[in-house]
Write a protein that binds this DNA or RNA. Structure first.
Length: 268
DNA sequence: ACACTGACCTGCGAGC
DNA sequence: TGCTCGCAGGTCAGTG
């Protein structure tokens, strides 16, 4: 389940592997992976070079000569760099041939991921209504305060709201709230200024550690040879049975349609 | 205008 | 053992 740290890892890995390569052909095997007409998509990519690589929230951005190739991996999307003669499997939905003879293969078991072509001058600040990056200065205490008092939702939903802050998914949301000793179901309107500071600090600390570790994941870690980073499982509450800090039984509750894990003893 | 719900998908594990 | 059923998750369209 790629969240910000996993996407960051994928971007850096691909930057290392395919920077400067030219796209010679594109095959779309599952049409819904591509936003818009697949043949138009193909034509817009052919003869383009991979120039620079970036991430915005959970979106991967490949800057080509004339367009941006924007990819969202959703839950299970991954890229494989293989030789064209290697066997395909039924989950490889988009094949991108490169001028060095390799093929970049988009693999997605659940077919949830999406790719789209964007103009080079797309405003990434307002792109998909994404909120600030967690490491940006814009994600300040004043910003958090202003946002949370304008909205009424559980803290868990706030962290998952991509308009609030970009890049946090279910796993890291649980971990951030555990680190702040806050229950996921607590109203975002009922926290203190100190909690706001803690949320910002712990969000950055946990995401930074996860990036350094090459990304964390729970179920999708199945040692794929895909470009997904070094997966580790360093969770303190998410999917855990007992609290890593006090040993209490971890509770699970559905909040905003998402399973949310927390320690009823440590988190208030 | 806001927050909430269901659809999109497939694999897997629980339960009978 | 073999089947069915429901859950997992991020985003967005649709609903209240």
């Amino acid at each position: 389940m790629p969240e910000l740290p996993e996407v960051e890892t994928v971007v850096r890995t691909l930057e290392h592997q395919i920077s400067g390569r030219m796209i010679t052909d594109v095959t779309v095997r599952y049409e819904k992976t591509v936003v818009g007409d697949p043949e138009t998509f193909r034509k817009q990519l052919i003869r383009q070079h991979f120039r620079t690589f970036a991430r915005r929230g959970k979106y991967l951005l490949f800057y080509l000569n004339d367009v941006i190739l924007c990819v969202h991996l959703r839950m299970e999307g991954k890229f494989w760099l293989q030789k064209p003669e290697e066997p395909l499997n039924r989950h490889m939905h988009v094949l991108i041939d490169l001028d060095d003879g390799m093929q970049l293969r988009y693999h997605d078991t659940r077919k949830f991921g999406r790719m789209e072509i964007l103009p080079l001058d797309t405003d990434l600040r307002t792109f998909h209504e994404l909120g600030p990056e967690p490491f940006s200065e814009e994600f300040s205490r004043a910003y958090v305060h202003a946002y949370r008092i304008r909205h009424d939702m559980p803290l868990k939903s706030l962290l998952l709201d991509q308009r609030f802050v970009a890049g946090i998914g279910n796993i890291y949301a649980d971990e951030i709230l555990a680190a702040c000793n806050l229950r996921p179901g607590r109203s975002c309107q009922r926290i203190t200024a100190k909690d706001e500071e803690n949320l910002i600090r712990e969000t950055r600390r946990i995401l930074k550690a996860a990036i350094a570790a090459g990304g964390t994941t729970i179920r999708s870690y199945t040692s794929s040879l895909g470009i997904t980073g070094l997966f580790q499982t360093e969770c303190t509450v998410h999917m855990m049975k007992t609290c890593a800090r006090c040993g209490s039984d971890i509770h699970m509750k559905r909040i905003g349609g998402r399973s949310s894990y927390y320690c009823p003893h440590c988190q208030k």
